[in-house]
Design a protein around this nucleic acid. Structure first.
Lengths: 334, 334
DNA sequence: TTGCACAATGGTAACGTTAACATTTGGTCG
DNA sequence: CGACCAAATGTTAACGTTACCATTGTGCAA
């Protein structure tokens, strides 16, 4: 029985087609300087042998892998799927592939992500940051390895990209003020969350920019439970006509909490969230919220690496705004 | 100033350390036949030059990439993130990397996934199937490319792995019957969903196995809205004391629908779902549901490829059972 | 002293591809 | 008719790594 051929190389194809290896290579790349009938003969030989170009030989020769590495400390995380959709789409566009790696978060450093990637066949890397790495200030990307960080922080040596959390709060607050609300109450998140704190800043500063002193915020923990408690707490506050929660789960919890105290949404109190994560889960509500374009974030990161290709491009910082989605949980007081 | 060195190779390290390239290679692989002091000298040279082994050269020499390709038709999909967590974990364990590719679903064939992968540096591939590919019956994996399909269907040439949808329904139905309910009503999903139909079969056959003729099912469309409508419809049925919905969104919608008709859950009617996807979104309920171990599904797939390494292992089919999670939406009638 | 085993290291070739240059062929123009 | 040109194809070498085999040196038994 036919022994398993290790792998079919240009040499084998060349021999069968009766041409040189170079002509095979040229045919693979559809060079115009090969006669059509020769090409056809070579293609026939390739089909017969089941030839497929060897990536390693090619990369070795070219010195490029046409691959972008993605390092994640946590794979499970809001928006990661959409980001990956973006990575894949952009990679596709440039003829690149994506190599995914989970990085052990102990210690939580960019260095560990970088060294993990250094042995893989990638031309550049993207790191998804969920927290503040210990070496954020001192990190230097590997020479020749373009590195993009998914974070809202700016870095002197690496390009960065993320959702614009500040602007997101600005949009929500201005939307609510625009509807005639005198102030906007806020349900925050745990203080360790970078993006959550930025949302908080956005809320606070936008109110101040409108000459409104921010009311006391209620600290939540991302869960609907904490939103529920916050809703109950705010139900008794007569100045509270509008609540902005740092995510949709808390916003929905808040609505339930308000209603448990006899307050109706949006008749008595308006509520808005962030994330557009309720989707088809809640039947009787369309929450007013902000939808982030994580796919675009992902595309930007990979574009930056694959798009530059040879020509090294400079360090850039990109914040991508979300879009406010109007639901039925906000009342127009005007 | 210093011109950008193309890349540092063993040759450069060898020259600096005053040894042969072979000794450098042996040091990289920590071979016992290199004197400790020589190793140290070589390591120092590597550090000084910033040497990192070139993946292409290595793969070319070895004929292995130590990488598993993952082909997805849709990146966004329930459980994909957990599956990826599994891919990454298993790959890590074996010293493998994961290469992710989005496959254009036009046409929706295994062949298109396979040919997309064939040019990439992978030793084996995993295809996540969401629907029935047109060529499922006739597909042959590339020679030498171990292929695992994530699907509950069995394939003669490819190993397969997925959640056990039938068993999931069996668990829920037997749980409800065990609590004294005389029958279990069902909210189904659109008929095009493979896994959804399997859940439906599980519900039907388990009831029959207990000598119960399945009641008329209510067809839903995965959304809470459709669950809401189903709940309202079933609220008037006096025989209906237990409802099983094919996903959590419909289950939650159903609960809201029942309550809108004055029925209480679980006092009047018990409700169970599937997916454990409500998480922290709903504040006042802990839905009884089934949690699938998608991470394990992902690990199994990559284990199958990376674990076999050289020795070709046979075709296997694996169904991984979910775990029933008790919430507070089911009443014990006994 | 010779012979031999063993530890440490070096030299060479090959993996598959393709850029750069070399060669052949057929045709055109002065 | 020879010089020259372009199109088509071939030859060579190199990318970085490592398996295989060869070589050198050292200690020990015969």
């Amino acid at each position: 029985m036919a022994a398993v051929k290790k792998s079919v190389s240009v040499k084998d194809v060349a021999r069968l087609a009766g041409v040189s290896e170079q002509t095979v290579s040229r045919t693979v790349h559809d060079s115009p300087s090969v006669r059509p009938e020769t090409k056809e003969r070579v293609r026939a030989a390739m089909r017969e042998l089941g030839y497929r170009p060897n990536f390693a030989g090619r990369s070795l020769r070219r010195g490029k892998f046409k691959t972008v590495g993605v390092a994640m400390f946590n794979i499970t995380g809001t928006g990661n799927l959409d980001r990956m959709e973006g990575f894949a789409a952009a990679a596709d566009k440039h003829g690149y592939a994506i190599t995914l790696t989970k990085v052990d978060g102990h210690p939580y450093t960019l260095e560990s992500a970088s060294s993990r990637m250094s042995a893989l066949p990638v031309d550049g890397m993207v790191v998804i940051m969920n927290r503040m790495p210990a070496d954020f200030g001192t990190f230097e990307p590997l020479p020749g390895m373009q590195t993009v960080l998914v974070t809202m922080l700016e870095h002197p040596l690496c390009s960065t990209v993320d959702n614009d959390q500040f602007d997101c709060s600005r949009q929500v607050v201005e939307y609510l003020l625009g509807r005639g609300h005198k102030t906007v109450h806020f349900i925050s998140c745990p203080e360790r969350s970078l993006s959550g704190m930025r949302r908080e800043e956005g809320w606070r500063e936008t109110l101040r920019a409108h000459g409104i002193e921010p009311p006391r915020l209620v600290r939540g923990d991302w869960t609907a439970q904490s939103g529920y408690a916050a809703g109950q707490a705010l139900a008794d506050d007569p100045t509270c006509t509008a609540i902005y929660a740092s995510n949709d789960a808390m916003a929905y919890g808040c609505i339930c909490g308000l209603e448990s105290r006899g307050k109706h949404v949006p008749e008595d109190v308006s509520v808005a969230g962030v994330d557009d994560s309720l989707g088809d889960i809640v039947p009787d509500r369309r929450l007013t919220t902000v939808r982030f374009d994580n796919k675009r974030v992902g595309m930007w990161a990979v574009d930056k690496i694959a798009g530059a290709d040879g020509g090294a491009s400079g360090v850039e910082h990109m914040l991508i705004p979300g879009v406010l989605v109007e639901g039925d949980t906000v009342r127009d007081l005007r």
